[in-house]
């Protein structure tokens, strides 16, 4: 792909991202005016319910009647809590969508660097110590304080040794191998 067509592709992706964004909520706040009005109405209803419940409880000394009005007030508080939870969930969702969009764009522009495997040549010498199951590059920490014998990679391979995944003799270490994992205690 030439640089011109790459630029066109990028511009196209950018336009697609903007078109997608236009369909999503894109205001100065995570909530639209409609969300704010809807939640404000629910909270206002809850507040009115609370006041009505309080007036109802205060208006009588009959316990049955009072508990009924108290139940009304509790229902109003639950309604208010429902409105608050909806408000926060809406906000969390919109922020999550925007975060995903930004991270996707960042990943697209700055992809993670891919570690390329090292190129083995017959001229290179790799060391191993008796008892090891792998052969290592000369500078590998696993050869420190040892007396390794050096040979070409093909010689080690013929002897049944594997390349060291730590010093990346045979390429990048597999992602599930931690740096200090020497494969069953012996390298």
């Amino acid at each position: 792909m030439s640089s011109i067509s790459l630029g066109e592709a990028r511009a196209g992706t950018s336009r697609t991202a903007r078109a997608r964004r236009a369909r999503l909520h894109d205001g100065p706040e995570p909530w639209s005016r409609r969300d704010a009005v809807a939640v404000a109405v629910v909270l206002l209803l809850a507040l009115i319910g609370l006041v009505i419940g309080w007036l109802g409880v205060s208006d009588t000394v009959d316990l049955d009647s009072q508990t009924g009005w108290l139940g009304f007030g509790i229902a109003a508080v639950i309604l208010g809590g429902f409105g608050m939870v909806i408000w926060l969930l809406l906000g969390l969702r919109r922020v999550a969508v925007l975060r995903r969009e930004v991270l996707t764009e960042l990943d697209r522009r700055h992809p993670k660097p891919v570690r390329t495997p090292g190129v083995l040549t017959d001229g290179q010498q790799f060391g191993t110590v008796t008892g090891m199951r792998r052969y290592h590059a000369a500078g590998c920490q696993l050869l420190e304080d040892k007396a390794p014998s050096f040979a070409a990679a093909s010689v080690h391979a013929e002897a049944g040794l594997l390349p060291c995944p730590i010093c990346t003799v045979g390429g990048a270490p597999p992602p599930d191998v931690p740096p200090n994992n020497t494969g069953g205690g012996r390298a």
């Binding site: 809850a46 609370l50 309080w54 409880v57 205060s58 009072q66 009005w69 508080v77 208010g80």
Partner: peptide
């Protein structure tokens, strides 16, 4: 007690 529970209690929680 119930009027206080309905006003101050529920109002405070709200």
């Amino acid at each position: 007690q119930l009027p206080y529970l309905a006003s101050a209690g529920l109002g405070g929680v709200f």
